[in-house]
Amino acid sequence: MKLRAASAIGFILLSLVTVIFVSCQSDAEVEFQRYYSNGGAIYQARCQNCHGAHGEGLQALIPPLNDTTYIKTNKPALACYIKNGMKGKIVILSRHFEGEMPASDLAPVELASVLSYISNSFGNKLGIVKSEQVEENLKGCK
């Protein structure tokens, strides 16, 4: 009986700690969640048809987004690719792709959101991409 009471108290304490932990999410985390979930909605509407729900791409026609090395190495250029489109040959996971990705009319904050989503989904874990950073990156578009 004692044991049961102890475990009940333990459970209540644990719940309390969880509630406190969750409600005390740092501002940074809240900001990340905001970017990430907005980005998910943009991805679904604008990217998913071609790149797939799991970033898997389509055979040799459309490149996948789950090559963590590619996303990491090209991170500063990704905003340019999405905004201005992309043309020509690329190699992802030693597979060759050539074709054309159309340009988009996404605003910097939307680019930041969708990049926060992509670079933290499909195996990528690169943290938040903020609007200011995107604006900075866009200045370097080739």
Binding site: Q48, N49, L58, Q59, E100, P102
Partner: peptide
């Protein structure tokens, strides 16, 4: 073949 909207998802499913 150059369809940017629904064709890729159609042919992903047709596969």
């Amino acid at each position: 073949t150059t369809c940017p909207s629904i064709c890729p998802v159609m042919h992903r499913n047709m596969l």
